[in-house]
Design a protein around this nucleic acid. Structure first.
Lengths: 210, 210
DNA sequence: TTGACAAACTGAACGGCGTTCTGTTAATTA
DNA sequence: TAATTAACAGAACGCCGTTCAGTTTGTCAA
Protein backbone atom coordinates (compact mmCIF):
# COMPACT_ATOMS: atom_id res chain seq x y z
CA UNK A 1 0.00 0.00 0.00
CA UNK A 2 2.86 2.39 -0.80
CA UNK A 3 0.82 3.98 -3.57
CA UNK A 4 -1.22 6.28 -1.39
CA UNK A 5 1.91 7.47 0.37
CA UNK A 6 3.65 8.27 -2.89
CA UNK A 7 0.57 10.12 -4.10
CA UNK A 8 0.40 12.12 -0.91
CA UNK A 9 4.09 12.90 -1.20
CA UNK A 10 3.69 14.07 -4.78
CA UNK A 11 0.77 16.23 -3.82
CA UNK A 12 2.74 17.76 -1.01
CA UNK A 13 5.61 18.41 -3.41
CA UNK A 14 3.42 20.37 -5.78
CA UNK A 15 1.92 22.28 -2.89
CA UNK A 16 5.41 23.25 -1.83
CA UNK A 17 6.31 24.14 -5.41
CA UNK A 18 3.38 26.52 -5.53
CA UNK A 19 4.41 28.05 -2.21
CA UNK A 20 8.00 28.46 -3.37
CA UNK A 21 7.03 30.16 -6.61
CA UNK A 22 4.48 32.35 -4.86
CA UNK A 23 6.93 33.24 -2.13
CA UNK A 24 9.59 34.26 -4.60
CA UNK A 25 7.23 36.41 -6.67
CA UNK A 26 5.73 37.80 -3.50
CA UNK A 27 9.08 38.96 -2.18
CA UNK A 28 10.04 40.36 -5.56
CA UNK A 29 6.83 42.20 -6.38
CA UNK A 30 4.54 42.45 -3.36
CA UNK A 31 1.12 40.96 -2.80
CA UNK A 32 -0.88 43.22 -5.09
CA UNK A 33 1.40 42.71 -8.08
CA UNK A 34 1.43 38.93 -7.98
CA UNK A 35 -1.45 37.25 -9.78
CA UNK A 36 -2.48 33.64 -9.52
CA UNK A 37 -1.87 33.39 -13.25
CA UNK A 38 1.73 34.54 -12.81
CA UNK A 39 2.37 31.88 -10.20
CA UNK A 40 0.79 29.25 -12.42
CA UNK A 41 2.95 30.37 -15.35
CA UNK A 42 6.12 30.10 -13.33
CA UNK A 43 5.47 26.50 -12.25
CA UNK A 44 3.98 25.59 -15.64
CA UNK A 45 0.58 24.55 -14.36
CA UNK A 46 -2.83 25.97 -15.05
CA UNK A 47 -4.23 28.62 -12.67
CA UNK A 48 -7.11 26.29 -11.86
CA UNK A 49 -4.70 23.78 -10.37
CA UNK A 50 -3.65 26.23 -7.69
CA UNK A 51 -7.21 26.26 -6.46
CA UNK A 52 -6.96 22.53 -5.81
CA UNK A 53 -4.32 23.30 -3.21
CA UNK A 54 -5.42 26.65 -1.78
CA UNK A 55 -8.86 28.05 -1.17
CA UNK A 56 -7.98 31.41 -2.67
CA UNK A 57 -5.16 33.87 -3.20
CA UNK A 58 -5.41 35.14 0.35
CA UNK A 59 -5.00 31.71 1.86
CA UNK A 60 -1.96 31.08 -0.30
CA UNK A 61 -0.21 34.18 0.94
CA UNK A 62 -1.28 33.86 4.53
CA UNK A 63 0.34 30.42 4.49
CA UNK A 64 3.56 32.11 3.45
CA UNK A 65 3.21 34.73 6.14
CA UNK A 66 2.63 32.06 8.72
CA UNK A 67 5.79 30.24 7.66
CA UNK A 68 7.74 33.46 7.84
CA UNK A 69 6.46 34.59 11.20
CA UNK A 70 7.20 31.19 12.63
CA UNK A 71 10.80 32.16 11.93
CA UNK A 72 10.42 35.24 14.10
CA UNK A 73 8.96 33.16 16.89
CA UNK A 74 11.91 30.77 16.67
CA UNK A 75 14.33 33.67 16.81
CA UNK A 76 12.61 35.08 19.87
CA UNK A 77 12.58 31.65 21.50
CA UNK A 78 16.29 31.45 20.92
CA UNK A 79 16.87 34.87 22.44
CA UNK A 80 14.74 34.03 25.45
CA UNK A 81 16.83 30.91 25.98
CA UNK A 82 20.02 32.88 26.42
CA UNK A 83 19.93 33.85 30.06
CA UNK A 84 21.35 37.29 30.66
CA UNK A 85 20.49 40.79 31.70
CA UNK A 86 16.69 41.21 31.39
CA UNK A 87 16.88 44.74 30.07
CA UNK A 88 19.46 43.86 27.43
CA UNK A 89 17.32 40.85 26.52
CA UNK A 90 14.24 43.00 26.05
CA UNK A 91 16.17 45.37 23.86
CA UNK A 92 17.50 42.52 21.73
CA UNK A 93 13.98 41.17 21.31
CA UNK A 94 12.60 44.50 20.19
CA UNK A 95 15.46 44.89 17.74
CA UNK A 96 14.87 41.38 16.43
CA UNK A 97 11.25 42.29 15.76
CA UNK A 98 12.14 45.44 13.84
CA UNK A 99 14.95 43.77 11.90
CA UNK A 100 12.63 40.93 11.05
CA UNK A 101 10.02 43.28 9.66
CA UNK A 102 12.59 45.04 7.53
CA UNK A 103 13.95 41.72 6.30
CA UNK A 104 10.47 40.54 5.27
CA UNK A 105 8.71 43.75 4.30
CA UNK A 106 5.97 42.23 2.16
CA UNK A 107 5.05 39.62 4.73
CA UNK A 108 5.03 42.26 7.41
CA UNK A 109 2.83 44.62 5.44
CA UNK A 110 0.36 41.90 4.51
CA UNK A 111 0.12 40.69 8.08
CA UNK A 112 0.01 43.95 10.01
CA UNK A 113 -0.85 46.74 7.58
CA UNK A 114 -3.74 45.25 5.62
CA UNK A 115 -7.36 45.54 6.66
CA UNK A 116 -8.89 42.22 7.71
CA UNK A 117 -12.60 41.76 7.97
CA UNK A 118 -13.20 40.47 11.48
CA UNK A 119 -16.96 40.66 11.21
CA UNK A 120 -19.51 37.89 11.44
CA UNK A 121 -18.80 34.61 9.69
CA UNK A 122 -15.41 35.57 8.30
CA UNK A 123 -13.33 32.99 10.11
CA UNK A 124 -10.15 33.22 8.03
CA UNK A 125 -8.61 29.91 9.04
CA UNK A 126 -5.12 30.88 8.12
CA UNK A 127 -5.24 34.29 9.64
CA UNK A 128 -6.13 32.63 12.88
CA UNK A 129 -2.99 30.55 12.56
CA UNK A 130 -1.02 33.71 12.02
CA UNK A 131 -2.73 35.25 14.96
CA UNK A 132 -1.59 32.37 17.09
CA UNK A 133 2.00 33.12 16.15
CA UNK A 134 1.29 36.81 16.71
CA UNK A 135 -0.01 36.10 20.17
CA UNK A 136 3.02 34.02 21.02
CA UNK A 137 5.24 36.85 19.85
CA UNK A 138 3.29 39.19 22.05
CA UNK A 139 3.71 36.81 24.99
CA UNK A 140 7.46 36.97 24.49
CA UNK A 141 7.33 40.73 24.81
CA UNK A 142 5.11 40.54 27.85
CA UNK A 143 7.42 38.09 29.60
CA UNK A 144 10.47 40.16 28.76
CA UNK A 145 8.85 43.27 30.18
CA UNK A 146 7.81 41.37 33.29
CA UNK A 147 11.35 40.15 33.87
CA UNK A 148 12.62 43.70 33.66
CA UNK A 149 10.05 44.84 36.16
CA UNK A 150 10.96 42.05 38.54
CA UNK A 151 14.64 42.88 38.25
CA UNK A 152 13.78 46.47 39.09
CA UNK A 153 15.19 47.76 35.82
CA UNK A 154 11.82 48.95 34.60
CA UNK A 155 8.71 50.23 36.35
CA UNK A 156 5.14 50.41 35.15
CA UNK A 157 1.60 49.79 36.32
CA UNK A 158 -0.24 47.35 34.10
CA UNK A 159 1.78 44.70 32.27
CA UNK A 160 -0.79 44.01 29.56
CA UNK A 161 -1.35 47.65 28.72
CA UNK A 162 2.36 48.39 28.71
CA UNK A 163 3.08 45.47 26.43
CA UNK A 164 0.50 46.65 23.97
CA UNK A 165 1.83 50.18 24.02
CA UNK A 166 5.38 49.00 23.41
CA UNK A 167 4.21 46.77 20.62
CA UNK A 168 2.33 49.57 18.86
CA UNK A 169 5.45 51.70 19.11
CA UNK A 170 7.83 49.25 17.53
CA UNK A 171 5.17 48.42 14.98
CA UNK A 172 5.10 52.09 14.05
CA UNK A 173 8.84 52.20 13.69
CA UNK A 174 8.90 49.01 11.67
CA UNK A 175 6.07 49.88 9.31
CA UNK A 176 7.31 53.37 8.59
CA UNK A 177 10.81 52.07 7.96
CA UNK A 178 9.37 49.62 5.47
CA UNK A 179 7.04 52.04 3.75
CA UNK A 180 8.78 55.37 3.72
CA UNK A 181 12.45 54.68 3.96
CA UNK A 182 12.93 55.45 0.28
CA UNK A 183 10.90 58.64 0.31
CA UNK A 184 13.14 61.39 -1.03
CA UNK A 185 10.66 64.11 -0.08
CA UNK A 186 11.13 63.62 3.61
CA UNK A 187 14.37 64.22 5.51
CA UNK A 188 14.53 60.84 7.22
CA UNK A 189 17.34 60.23 9.66
CA UNK A 190 19.29 57.04 8.96
CA UNK A 191 17.31 53.89 9.87
CA UNK A 192 19.88 52.78 12.43
CA UNK A 193 19.58 56.07 14.26
CA UNK A 194 15.79 55.99 14.18
CA UNK A 195 15.72 52.46 15.58
CA UNK A 196 18.20 53.05 18.38
CA UNK A 197 16.60 56.33 19.39
CA UNK A 198 13.22 54.65 19.40
CA UNK A 199 14.42 51.90 21.70
CA UNK A 200 16.10 54.49 23.91
CA UNK A 201 12.91 56.45 24.24
CA UNK A 202 10.81 53.40 25.08
CA UNK A 203 13.19 52.12 27.73
CA UNK A 204 13.66 55.57 29.19
CA UNK A 205 9.92 55.98 29.42
CA UNK A 206 9.67 52.75 31.38
CA UNK A 207 12.68 53.22 33.60
CA UNK A 208 12.10 53.74 37.33
CA UNK A 209 12.18 57.28 38.71
CA UNK A 210 15.68 58.57 38.16
CA UNK B 1 -17.74 86.78 -22.19
CA UNK B 2 -19.40 85.08 -19.21
CA UNK B 3 -19.68 81.85 -21.18
CA UNK B 4 -16.20 80.61 -20.45
CA UNK B 5 -16.68 81.31 -16.76
CA UNK B 6 -19.93 79.41 -16.63
CA UNK B 7 -18.33 76.51 -18.48
CA UNK B 8 -15.45 76.47 -16.05
CA UNK B 9 -17.86 76.58 -13.15
CA UNK B 10 -19.84 73.66 -14.53
CA UNK B 11 -16.70 71.70 -15.06
CA UNK B 12 -15.63 72.37 -11.50
CA UNK B 13 -19.05 71.32 -10.28
CA UNK B 14 -18.80 67.94 -11.95
CA UNK B 15 -15.30 67.50 -10.64
CA UNK B 16 -16.61 68.12 -7.16
CA UNK B 17 -19.51 65.77 -7.78
CA UNK B 18 -17.05 63.02 -8.66
CA UNK B 19 -15.02 63.75 -5.57
CA UNK B 20 -18.10 63.71 -3.37
CA UNK B 21 -19.33 60.40 -4.71
CA UNK B 22 -15.87 58.88 -4.55
CA UNK B 23 -15.33 60.18 -1.05
CA UNK B 24 -18.58 58.74 0.18
CA UNK B 25 -17.94 55.31 -1.36
CA UNK B 26 -14.35 55.46 -0.19
CA UNK B 27 -15.35 56.02 3.41
CA UNK B 28 -18.04 53.35 3.20
CA UNK B 29 -16.04 50.62 1.50
CA UNK B 30 -12.32 51.41 1.48
CA UNK B 31 -10.04 52.09 -1.45
CA UNK B 32 -9.76 48.54 -2.77
CA UNK B 33 -13.51 47.97 -2.87
CA UNK B 34 -14.40 51.11 -4.78
CA UNK B 35 -14.21 50.84 -8.54
CA UNK B 36 -14.24 53.67 -11.02
CA UNK B 37 -17.36 52.11 -12.50
CA UNK B 38 -19.14 52.29 -9.13
CA UNK B 39 -18.36 55.97 -8.82
CA UNK B 40 -19.56 56.57 -12.38
CA UNK B 41 -22.77 54.69 -11.65
CA UNK B 42 -23.50 56.75 -8.61
CA UNK B 43 -23.21 60.08 -10.42
CA UNK B 44 -24.84 58.69 -13.56
CA UNK B 45 -21.94 59.36 -15.90
CA UNK B 46 -19.84 56.95 -17.89
CA UNK B 47 -16.59 55.69 -16.36
CA UNK B 48 -14.68 57.29 -19.19
CA UNK B 49 -15.83 60.74 -18.10
CA UNK B 50 -14.01 60.38 -14.80
CA UNK B 51 -10.77 60.12 -16.73
CA UNK B 52 -11.41 63.57 -18.19
CA UNK B 53 -11.13 64.95 -14.67
CA UNK B 54 -8.57 62.67 -13.03
CA UNK B 55 -5.51 60.97 -14.47
CA UNK B 56 -6.30 57.67 -12.79
CA UNK B 57 -7.93 56.09 -9.78
CA UNK B 58 -4.91 56.84 -7.59
CA UNK B 59 -4.99 60.53 -8.39
CA UNK B 60 -8.68 60.68 -7.59
CA UNK B 61 -8.18 59.24 -4.15
CA UNK B 62 -5.02 61.09 -3.36
CA UNK B 63 -6.98 64.30 -4.04
CA UNK B 64 -9.42 63.18 -1.38
CA UNK B 65 -6.63 62.36 1.02
CA UNK B 66 -5.12 65.73 0.44
CA UNK B 67 -8.42 67.45 1.20
CA UNK B 68 -8.79 65.39 4.34
CA UNK B 69 -5.30 65.95 5.64
CA UNK B 70 -5.64 69.65 5.06
CA UNK B 71 -8.28 69.38 7.76
CA UNK B 72 -5.72 67.92 10.14
CA UNK B 73 -3.33 70.72 9.37
CA UNK B 74 -6.06 73.28 10.05
CA UNK B 75 -6.85 71.60 13.36
CA UNK B 76 -3.19 71.64 14.36
CA UNK B 77 -2.89 75.29 13.31
CA UNK B 78 -5.83 76.08 15.53
CA UNK B 79 -4.28 74.25 18.46
CA UNK B 80 -0.96 75.98 17.96
CA UNK B 81 -2.76 79.32 18.03
CA UNK B 82 -4.08 78.75 21.52
CA UNK B 83 -1.23 79.87 23.69
CA UNK B 84 -0.88 77.74 26.80
CA UNK B 85 1.29 75.23 28.53
CA UNK B 86 3.70 73.77 25.93
CA UNK B 87 3.53 70.25 27.29
CA UNK B 88 -0.25 70.23 27.38
CA UNK B 89 -0.22 71.64 23.86
CA UNK B 90 2.05 68.87 22.63
CA UNK B 91 -0.17 66.28 24.17
CA UNK B 92 -3.26 67.81 22.60
CA UNK B 93 -1.55 67.80 19.22
CA UNK B 94 -0.59 64.16 19.46
CA UNK B 95 -4.12 63.25 20.49
CA UNK B 96 -5.52 65.26 17.61
CA UNK B 97 -3.37 63.27 15.22
CA UNK B 98 -4.52 59.92 16.58
CA UNK B 99 -8.16 60.97 16.76
CA UNK B 100 -7.92 62.24 13.24
CA UNK B 101 -6.58 58.93 11.97
CA UNK B 102 -9.35 57.03 13.69
CA UNK B 103 -11.94 59.42 12.31
CA UNK B 104 -10.64 58.96 8.74
CA UNK B 105 -9.36 55.41 8.74
CA UNK B 106 -9.44 54.83 5.00
CA UNK B 107 -7.66 58.07 4.20
CA UNK B 108 -5.09 57.34 6.85
CA UNK B 109 -4.44 53.82 5.61
CA UNK B 110 -4.12 54.93 2.01
CA UNK B 111 -1.75 57.73 2.89
CA UNK B 112 0.49 56.06 5.45
CA UNK B 113 0.05 52.31 5.14
CA UNK B 114 0.22 51.77 1.40
CA UNK B 115 3.44 51.16 -0.48
CA UNK B 116 4.38 54.03 -2.81
CA UNK B 117 6.92 53.60 -5.53
CA UNK B 118 9.46 56.36 -4.91
CA UNK B 119 11.84 55.10 -7.58
CA UNK B 120 12.99 56.81 -10.73
CA UNK B 121 10.52 58.80 -12.80
CA UNK B 122 7.49 58.13 -10.59
CA UNK B 123 6.71 61.70 -9.65
CA UNK B 124 3.19 61.23 -8.30
CA UNK B 125 2.07 64.84 -8.44
CA UNK B 126 -0.68 64.42 -5.93
CA UNK B 127 1.32 62.44 -3.49
CA UNK B 128 3.79 65.28 -3.46
CA UNK B 129 0.93 67.56 -2.50
CA UNK B 130 0.03 65.21 0.30
CA UNK B 131 3.62 65.08 1.32
CA UNK B 132 3.64 68.83 1.60
CA UNK B 133 0.76 68.61 4.08
CA UNK B 134 2.55 65.74 5.79
CA UNK B 135 5.68 67.80 6.16
CA UNK B 136 3.74 70.71 7.60
CA UNK B 137 2.15 68.35 10.09
CA UNK B 138 5.58 67.12 11.00
CA UNK B 139 6.76 70.71 11.44
CA UNK B 140 3.97 71.26 13.91
CA UNK B 141 5.22 68.34 15.95
CA UNK B 142 8.78 69.54 15.75
CA UNK B 143 7.87 73.04 16.91
CA UNK B 144 5.74 71.68 19.74
CA UNK B 145 8.61 69.51 20.94
CA UNK B 146 11.00 72.42 20.69
CA UNK B 147 8.75 74.62 22.81
CA UNK B 148 8.64 71.93 25.47
CA UNK B 149 12.39 71.68 25.48
CA UNK B 150 12.77 75.43 25.78
CA UNK B 151 10.30 75.53 28.65
CA UNK B 152 12.37 72.84 30.33
CA UNK B 153 9.45 70.43 30.44
CA UNK B 154 11.14 67.97 28.13
CA UNK B 155 14.75 67.08 27.47
CA UNK B 156 16.36 65.39 24.46
CA UNK B 157 19.38 65.63 22.22
CA UNK B 158 18.43 65.97 18.57
CA UNK B 159 15.14 67.66 17.72
CA UNK B 160 14.78 66.14 14.27
CA UNK B 161 15.47 62.59 15.39
CA UNK B 162 13.19 62.92 18.38
CA UNK B 163 10.36 64.29 16.27
CA UNK B 164 10.64 61.37 13.88
CA UNK B 165 10.69 58.86 16.71
CA UNK B 166 7.61 60.39 18.29
CA UNK B 167 5.86 60.42 14.95
CA UNK B 168 6.57 56.76 14.26
CA UNK B 169 5.21 55.94 17.71
CA UNK B 170 1.90 57.68 17.33
CA UNK B 171 1.68 56.35 13.81
CA UNK B 172 2.00 52.86 15.25
CA UNK B 173 -0.73 53.52 17.77
CA UNK B 174 -2.99 55.06 15.16
CA UNK B 175 -2.54 52.41 12.51
CA UNK B 176 -3.00 49.49 14.87
CA UNK B 177 -6.09 51.10 16.36
CA UNK B 178 -7.49 51.41 12.86
CA UNK B 179 -6.55 47.96 11.68
CA UNK B 180 -6.91 45.68 14.65
CA UNK B 181 -9.36 47.28 16.98
CA UNK B 182 -12.07 44.83 15.95
CA UNK B 183 -9.90 41.76 16.24
CA UNK B 184 -11.66 39.37 18.61
CA UNK B 185 -8.64 37.06 18.75
CA UNK B 186 -6.48 39.53 20.58
CA UNK B 187 -7.15 40.86 24.09
CA UNK B 188 -6.90 44.54 23.24
CA UNK B 189 -7.21 47.02 26.06
CA UNK B 190 -9.80 49.74 25.41
CA UNK B 191 -8.63 52.28 22.79
CA UNK B 192 -8.81 55.17 25.21
CA UNK B 193 -6.52 53.40 27.62
CA UNK B 194 -4.07 52.47 24.88
CA UNK B 195 -3.93 56.04 23.63
CA UNK B 196 -3.46 57.66 27.02
CA UNK B 197 -0.86 55.13 28.11
CA UNK B 198 0.99 55.66 24.85
CA UNK B 199 1.10 59.40 25.35
CA UNK B 200 2.18 58.90 28.95
CA UNK B 201 5.04 56.67 27.89
CA UNK B 202 6.26 59.07 25.22
CA UNK B 203 6.20 62.11 27.46
CA UNK B 204 7.79 60.19 30.32
CA UNK B 205 10.56 59.05 28.03
CA UNK B 206 11.28 62.64 27.08
CA UNK B 207 10.95 64.18 30.51
CA UNK B 208 14.09 65.60 32.13
CA UNK B 209 15.89 63.49 34.74
CA UNK B 210 13.48 63.06 37.61
C1' DT C 1 -29.59 81.37 -40.04
C1' DT C 2 -26.12 78.43 -41.11
C1' DG C 3 -22.06 75.92 -41.00
C1' DA C 4 -17.54 75.13 -38.79
C1' DC C 5 -15.50 74.17 -34.69
C1' DA C 6 -14.42 72.66 -30.11
C1' DA C 7 -15.64 70.75 -25.88
C1' DA C 8 -18.11 67.22 -23.25
C1' DC C 9 -19.34 62.89 -23.06
C1' DT C 10 -20.12 57.83 -24.14
C1' DG C 11 -20.07 52.78 -26.01
C1' DA C 12 -17.30 49.49 -26.84
C1' DA C 13 -13.33 47.47 -26.44
C1' DC C 14 -8.47 45.83 -24.54
C1' DG C 15 -5.94 43.22 -21.53
C1' DG C 16 -5.82 41.61 -17.03
C1' DC C 17 -7.69 39.86 -12.73
C1' DG C 18 -9.73 36.01 -9.20
C1' DT C 19 -12.37 32.21 -9.53
C1' DT C 20 -15.39 28.25 -11.14
C1' DC C 21 -17.22 24.81 -14.17
C1' DT C 22 -16.92 21.11 -17.25
C1' DG C 23 -14.47 17.90 -19.50
C1' DT C 24 -10.31 15.13 -20.38
C1' DT C 25 -6.54 12.38 -19.25
C1' DA C 26 -4.06 9.07 -16.68
C1' DA C 27 -3.39 6.03 -12.89
C1' DT C 28 -5.39 2.68 -9.79
C1' DT C 29 -8.51 -0.80 -8.39
C1' DA C 30 -11.72 -4.68 -8.77
C1' DT D 1 -10.08 -5.43 -19.07
C1' DA D 2 -13.61 -2.40 -17.41
C1' DA D 3 -14.97 0.84 -13.86
C1' DT D 4 -13.58 4.23 -10.76
C1' DT D 5 -11.18 7.98 -9.13
C1' DA D 6 -7.85 11.75 -8.74
C1' DA D 7 -5.23 15.34 -11.07
C1' DC D 8 -5.33 18.62 -14.11
C1' DA D 9 -6.52 22.08 -17.94
C1' DG D 10 -9.44 25.10 -21.26
C1' DA D 11 -12.66 28.06 -21.47
C1' DA D 12 -15.56 30.94 -19.55
C1' DC D 13 -17.85 34.40 -15.99
C1' DG D 14 -17.98 38.71 -14.15
C1' DC D 15 -15.24 41.93 -12.47
C1' DC D 16 -11.43 45.56 -12.88
C1' DG D 17 -8.59 50.09 -14.72
C1' DT D 18 -8.04 52.35 -18.74
C1' DT D 19 -8.23 54.02 -23.72
C1' DC D 20 -10.08 55.41 -28.01
C1' DA D 21 -13.02 56.35 -31.76
C1' DG D 22 -17.10 58.44 -32.41
C1' DT D 23 -21.35 61.11 -31.19
C1' DT D 24 -23.69 64.74 -29.18
C1' DT D 25 -24.01 69.50 -27.64
C1' DG D 26 -23.33 74.19 -27.32
C1' DT D 27 -20.80 78.32 -29.15
C1' DC D 28 -19.32 81.55 -32.43
C1' DA D 29 -18.08 83.72 -37.06
C1' DA D 30 -19.86 84.46 -41.52
Amino acid sequence: MGVAERRAREKEELRQKILDAAGQLFVEEGFANVSVRKIADRIEYSPATIYLYFKDKTELFSSLCWETFSGLKAELDRLEGEAGDPLAGLRRGLRAYIDFGIAHPNHYLLTFCTPVDHSAGKVMDNFQEINRVGLETFDHLQRALDRCRQSGQLAFEDLNTTSQVVWTFIHGTTSLLILNSGDPHFPWVPPEQLIESSLDLILRGLSPAR
